[in-house]
């Protein structure tokens, strides 16, 4: 990997991050009139704010996030969905696309089922609600789920979706990239193996230069050169 001037600076919790009177943004805190980093992350600025993008850390649900969840428990009128986050979220029967009689939730989804849901709300006590009534919300069957670091999601999606579209085009797989770092893919077994490999490359080397080229090179090696 060639080294060049770090464009983004890695900051440590407790480091001072404002130098020019910027306002405290995401991932910062204020003490003694100074803005400091609260996370190990990358310092960036936008619109007069200084933000820290955490480098590690678990996914934390935000309203409107579309995620791949897994049923870990259920009750007579709800399922409990694990979102790969510090908190599971209840999915109420009324937020599902089905007509669910009281006590019959297990007819539609059982423990272990995977699903696509959208985060409806997160209240002040961090209780998360999800819904399946949004477009695309459904129980998943077939295919496979790969987990990547949730901070790698933007890289996997790519600018305007370019990276994930390239993978889908080469491998002819369906894919859904959840904001929570879970990626569902489905297709022919051979194609899925290649798609998974490409996704793993991105997870491992998200910071690398020329990642897009490397992934493209891998896919071309597997499928031969062809237009995306």
């Amino acid at each position: 990997m060639e080294s060049s001037e770090p464009r983004r600076q890695v900051v440590i919790p407790g480091e001072i991050v404002d130098t020019h009177g910027l306002k405290p943004g995401h991932g910062t805190y204020v003490d003694g009139g100074k803005v400091l980093a609260a996370f190990l992350g990358i310092r960036t600025e936008h619109e007069g704010f200084v933000d820290i993008i955490p480098l590690g850390g678990r996914y934390f649900p935000q309203p409107d996030d579309e995620v791949v969840g897994q049923v870990v428990d259920l009750g007579p009128s709800h399922w409990l969905i694990d979102l790969n986050a510090p908190y599971p979220a209840p999915l109420h029967a009324t937020e599902s696309p089905w007509r669910v009689e009281f006590g019959e939730t297990s007819k539609f989804m059982i423990i272990g089922d995977a699903c696509l849901v959208k985060v409806l709300s997160v209240d002040e006590t961090k209780r998360v609600q999800v819904t399946m009534r949004d477009r695309g919300g459904r129980r998943l069957s077939g295919g496979h789920i790969v987990e990547i670091g949730h901070s790698k999601v933007p890289r996997l999606i790519g600018k305007g979706g370019s990276m994930i579209t390239m993978i889908k085009d080469f491998t002819r797989c369906q894919a859904f990239v959840g904001q929570n770092g879970r990626v569902w893919i489905d297709g022919e077994m051979n194609d899925m193996v290649h798609a998974i490999q490409a996704i793993r490359m991105i997870d491992e080397h998200a910071q690398a230069i020329g990642l897009t080229e490397s992934v493209k090179g891998y896919l071309e090696g597997a499928y031969g050169k062809r237009g995306a």
Binding site: Q70, D82, I145, M189
Partner: peptide, 22 residues
Amino acid sequence: MSSEVVSELMREHIVKLVASGR
């Protein structure tokens, strides 16, 4: 998966994958 429950979907994928020799 981070939770201990393994989804049926993932189990089936691995079953099919290993059955194909990979």
